[in-house]
């Protein structure tokens, strides 16, 4: 399991990614990717799941999260406005331009991104997995994909446009605690249906910043007993 923990002022960010047993057994790499970047108390958190049937899925997911970070840096340095439509288009454009290969559909990947600039959070979601935010009784969660069966998903592909991304805004009261939670389907499929917000609220209310890393590692290990896909989660916790 690849775990990273970083503190930025009162924020703690923990990401964890673990290869699924099926990929491991077949000698394939972990096809999930996660990235974050913290500048002051502004941040970006992004997770992506490379689509298993694509030849270069692990690169597609890495390009997706790296493109998100690059976009955040451009927003922060004033090169791009913090506007939903523009960000959505740029997320797809940056991802596509990272791929020098002519066959973009070898790199398909889902994408979950959260940008936080001061108290304004923008959420972008394409494909399975979910993003959730909780803060003092308020919450937001990206909608579950209405797919017929498991492991079917929408994704970044040659045909994608910014309009394909689900987007939402959330305004934080920075005098209150909050949690931002992003995960790929390996985690989402391992959570009891309808309990996603409860899980994030538990992280907000009952797990201290010091306990977060250990609690997430323990959680991933438990999910691995029932779900054999790659698993990736990123959590931002702010304690006021």
């Amino acid at each position: 399991m690849n775990v990273r923990e970083e503190r930025c002022g009162k924020l703690i960010i923990v990401t964890a990614s673990d290869i699924g047993s099926s990929n491991q057994k077949l000698g394939h790499p972990n096809q999930d990717a996660v990235a974050f970047c913290c500048l002051g108390e502004d941040l970006i958190l992004s997770v992506s799941d490379g689509v298993g049937s694509c030849n270069k899925a692990e690169f597609g997911s890495r390009f997706a999260v790296d493109s998100s970070v690059k976009l955040f840096q451009e927003i922060k340095n004033g090169s791009l406005p913090f506007e939903t439509d523009i960000i959505a288009e740029k997320l797809v454009e940056f991802w596509r331009s990272s791929i020098s290969d002519s066959n973009i559909d070898d790199y398909c990947a889902t994408l979950k991104v959260v940008f936080k600039i001061f108290n304004h959070v923008k959420v972008f979601s394409l494909g399975d997995g979910f993003v959730a935010i909780t803060s003092d009784g308020l919450n937001l969660i990206s909608p579950a994909e209405e797919t017929c069966f498991t492991n079917e998903t929408n994704c970044l592909s040659a045909q994608s446009s910014g309009r394909d991304l689900w987007t939402a805004d959330f305004y934080l009261d920075t005098f209150k605690s909050y949690v931002i939670f992003c995960c790929t389907d390996g985690i989402a499929n391992g959570i009891l249906p309808g309990k996603e917000i409860n899980l994030v609220e538990e992280i907000e209310n009952d797990i201290s910043a010091n306990e977060l890393r250990h609690a997430l590692e323990d959680f991933l290990n438990d999910v691995s007993n029932y779900c054999f896909d790659d698993k990736t989660v990123g959590v931002v916790k702010y304690e006021h």
Binding site: N189, G190, L192, K195, N198, L199, D206, N225, Y226, C227
Partner: peptide
């Protein structure tokens, strides 16, 4: 309750 209480303990069919 602990985060593990939210794990779906059922294999996919």
């Amino acid at each position: 309750m602990g985060l593990n209480s939210y794990v779906a303990r059922e294999l996919r069919a």
